[in-house]
């Protein structure tokens, strides 16, 4: 049996909000350590890897491994019915037909209970070996989101160029071009405002702006995003959860 209680529904609300536009069907794998998901978008360009460790829950138990096949749009409809500050408990039997979601208001005696039918989802799984990266950028997630949104107004591609202590986001469109350069910066008082660049080799990679604009839907989850890049390899964008992560692997664009 699975029983996982979040102190606040807001965490799962944000996670589902971040994923639902990229992937329609997901298997949520529940083990004693927590809940994990691997899902790939229909175009097979973007892979989502989610880990909500048991430590992200107020209470968590899962006696046997359970797979919950969930339709994200349906899950999102139910999740939206709960308030962000409600306690949320996920309950499923050992061989479940449904996932139960219980929202409890902390101040009033109000309990809302929903049941979501499960689906059999035949999903293929990609093996992601330990990847080596040439550059790692830690930066404020809100700033990264703004850059992705702004650059998408110009072109459907966004170029990321990293040299020594700066990252340049460059967009070349039909009617014009634009770029934003950010440099390493340490804010000792507000560490979440800092930009850290770790570079082994200079980077020049191009990504689909559409996918980046799906990834930045994770912005409410974490104040910082970590971007890991390697020449002609998928990039990794990571948002930390209180205990766990939401990662996106995005295939680049390049000439064959």
């Amino acid at each position: 049996m699975l029983e996982g209680k979040f102190d606040e529904a807001s965490l799962l609300k944000k996670v589902i909000d971040a994923m639902k536009d990229s992937v329609k069907l997901c298997n949520f794998n529940c083990t004693e350590n927590g809940i994990s998901v691997q899902a790939i978008d229909d175009s097979r360009v973007l892979l989502i890897s989610l880990l909500i460790e048991a430590g992200s829950f107020e209470d968590y138990r899962c006696d046997r491994n359970i797979v919950l096949g969930l339709e994200m749009e349906s899950l999102n409809k139910i999740i939206k019915n709960g308030n962000a500050s409600d306690m949320l408990t996920l309950v499923a039997e050992d061989s479940p037909d449904a996932l139960n979601l219980i929202f409890e208001d902390k101040r009033r005696d109000r309990i809302a209970e929903y049941s979501l039918k499960l689906m059999d989802i035949d999903q293929d799984f990609l093996k992601i070996e330990d990847m080596k990266f040439d550059a790692v950028v830690n930066m404020p997630s809100a700033e990264f989101a703004k850059i992705c949104r702004d650059m998408k107004t110009l072109s459907e591609s966004l170029q990321i160029i990293i040299t020594k202590d700066s990252v340049k986001f460059n967009s070349e469109g039909d009617f014009g071009s634009g770029s934003v350069v950010i440099k390493s910066f340490t804010d000792l008082e507000k560490t979440e405002e800092s930009v850290r660049i770790t570079l082994e080799k200079p980077i020049n990679l191009t990504f689909g702006a559409k996918y980046l604009n799906d990834i930045i839907k994770s912005t409410p989850l974490a104040s910082q995003v970590t971007i890991k890049l390697c020449d002609k390899q998928p990039a990794l964008f990571e948002y930390q959860l209180p205990s766990g992560y939401l990662r996106f692997y995005l295939a680049p664009k390049f000439e064959d």
């Binding site: 790939i40 175009s43 097979r44 360009v45 973007l46 892979l47 293929d124 799984f125 990609l126 093996k127 992601i128 070996e129 591609s157 191009t206 689909g208 390899q233 998928p234 692997y249 295939a251 680049p252 664009k253 390049f254 000439e255 064959d256």
Partner: peptide, 14 residues
């Protein structure tokens, strides 16, 4: 002209 790659070119199915 750069082409959008897919993840299947980099990762194998498990």
């Amino acid at each position: 002209m750069s082409k959008q790659q897919t993840l299947g070119s980099f990762f194998s199915s498990a």
